[in-house]
């Protein structure tokens, strides 16, 4: 089954998904739907990185929001304070996030398993402290305002619709690049070091270098999502880059199915959809419900998904569809 999923023509899937996303805004006048989809795109970018890091290379990060934050604040500070071109600022955020990951990785990839998870968590705590304490640069707990919009020539990305297309343009590029990586020499090396580092080393794979590179790549994705987040909203606060967000990102990756690039998109979409749905559904079920009720319901749904689809939504759905097909085919 694993093999069949891998052979699914990804190019075809990419074209179908792109086409569907392109026509989606034409079918709805609802701005709310667009904003949700922008969020899905944005979180898909980060989750794809996590999927490469955790699902393929087998390295845990509970601090991925760090890079998301680095991208966002680099974008904001460079473009708003230093009036650097927003595009260059976005690029700088991506590069800085990757560079930070590389340097941090040099230190923490001596660690394995739980220790690695703790170290990445610590990294996230440090970023949060910097964001809240360095008020002069970051605006502190009250946030950073006035991040300029991106523009192309005389065209400025200003509406939700513009950012919808921009976000998904980048999201699909990230998905395409990642699919290529996964189905390559590099992807094999990543999966190899996931299963057995000693065996990977024994055939000449420099596992440490690969871990560092995957970590830097996942951070670059995080930085990209952060930069886009900053310019889209024009405003942000440290609360968007906490450990909780990092954990939510891991949840998205796990729900979608860890070792799957498409799964990352499903995971991000499913988690955001469930959250949004619960926000209204719980209110109508229990009139005086609080945020805690949503969290409980969310937790229950996650448990159900993990019990019935332990490989994640994507692999789970593919299997379900395939079973249904074979049932129908029988005379």
């Amino acid at each position: 089954m694993l093999n069949q999923i891998r052979r699914t023509p990804n190019l075809l899937a990419l074209i179908i998904v792109s086409a569907a996303l392109a026509v989606l805004p034409l079918t709805t006048q609802n701005n709310y739907i667009l904003t949700i989809f922008i969020l899905v795109g944005q979180f898909t970018i980060i989750t794809v990185g996590l999927s490469l890091l955790m699902g393929y290379a087998g390295q845990i990060s509970l601090g991925q929001a760090t890079f998301y934050g680095i991208g966002a604040y680099t974008m904001a500070i460079l473009s708003a304070r230093f009036e650097l071109s927003p595009w260059l600022s976005l690029l700088a955020g991506v590069i800085l996030a990757a560079a930070v990951a590389y340097l941090v990785g040099l230190l923490i990839f001596r660690l394995h398993g739980h220790y690695l998870a703790m170290a990445t968590l610590g990294m996230n705590v440090i970023l949060f402290l910097i964001l809240t304490q360095e008020v002069e640069w970051t605006g502190g707990p009250s946030g950073f305002r006035g991040v300029p919009d991106l523009s192309l020539g005389s065209f400025t990305f200003s509406s939700d619709l513009h950012y919808y297309y921009l976000m998904w343009f980048f999201t699909l590029i990230v998905i395409a690049l990642s699919l290529n990586i996964v189905n390559s020499r590099v992807g094999r090396a990543m999966r190899a070091l996931h299963t057995s580092e000693v065996a990977a080393e024994a055939v000449g794979i420099d596992t440490n270098a690969f871990k560092l590179k995957v970590f830097a790549l996942s951070a670059a994705y995080g930085g990209l999502a952060g930069g886009l987040h900053a310019t889209y909203l024009g405003f942000m606060s440290p609360g968007s880059f906490t450990i909780n967000v990092s954990i939510e990102l891991v949840v998205m990756a796990v729900v979608g199915g860890l070792a799957s690039v498409w799964g990352a998109m499903f995971g991000a979409g499913a988690v955001l959809a469930i959250e949004q749905y619960l926000r209204t559904a719980i209110k109508s079920l229990i009139p005086n419900a609080s945020g805690e009720h949503e969290i409980i319901a969310f937790g229950l749904i996650l448990m159900l998904i993990m019990i019935f689809m332990p490989q994640g939504l994507f692999a789970g759905l593919v299997t379900a569809v395939r079973q249904r097909r074979t049932v129908f085919r029988k005379p």
Binding site: R188, R191, A192, H194, S196, V198, A199, V203, G204
Partner: peptide
């Protein structure tokens, strides 16, 4: 190049 006493096969691959 070495092999291992306790077989080290990449189980997630063909």
């Amino acid at each position: 190049v070495r092999t291992f006493q306790n077989l080290q096969i990449f189980g997630n691959m063909t």
